[in-house]
């Protein structure tokens, strides 16, 4: 059986989640491996959530936020950006390919981008194979 990655996507309520809805309204297909969790802001994504998801066996973690300057909460997306940059280094140290963590800015109108990014990310994770942390 081919490898079907398990991916958690933390989507901010105002941009990325609405962008995912837009992809739906426009019927833009993408692989079902990505399961979204809505958070109010990408800045809410505690680095611990990401580590926890990997620990539980996620092959990839995605974070979607508003474009720089567009954050509904002023600057939560910048915080997310810094945290992801820091975590990527940490993941590498811990023996996990940092490509398994991806942050993207997706606005409420960018259904096309959401679908495209999901396809790309699933492909990327498929290439990387199952997470070494999988039980």
């Amino acid at each position: 059986m081919s490898f079907e990655p398990k991916i958690v996507a933390f989507l901010c309520n105002w941009c990325a989640y609405a962008g995912a809805d837009m992809a739906g309204t426009s019927r833009l297909k993408y692989p079902a491996n990505v399961i979204p969790i809505k958070v109010m802001c990408s800045g809410r994504v505690d680095p611990e959530f990401i580590l926890d998801a990997f620990k539980k066996g996620a092959d990839g973690v995605f974070i979607g936020g508003c474009h720089p300057g567009d954050c509904h909460y002023v600057n939560g997306n910048y915080r997310a950006m810094h945290r992801v940059a820091m975590l990527k280094k940490l993941l590498k140290e811990m023996g996990l390919n940092p490509k398994r963590l991806r942050l993207e800015w997706i606005s409420a109108t960018e259904g096309v981008k959401f679908s495209k990014v999901m396809k790309e990310f699933v492909e990327e994770i498929k290439k990387l194979g199952p997470s070494p942390w999988r039980k």
Partner: peptide, 11 residues
């Protein structure tokens, strides 16, 4: 959300 983020985008 099993419509916008599921049935409309997956098979």
């Amino acid at each position: 959300n099993i419509r916008e983020q599921c049935s409309w985008v997956h098979d």
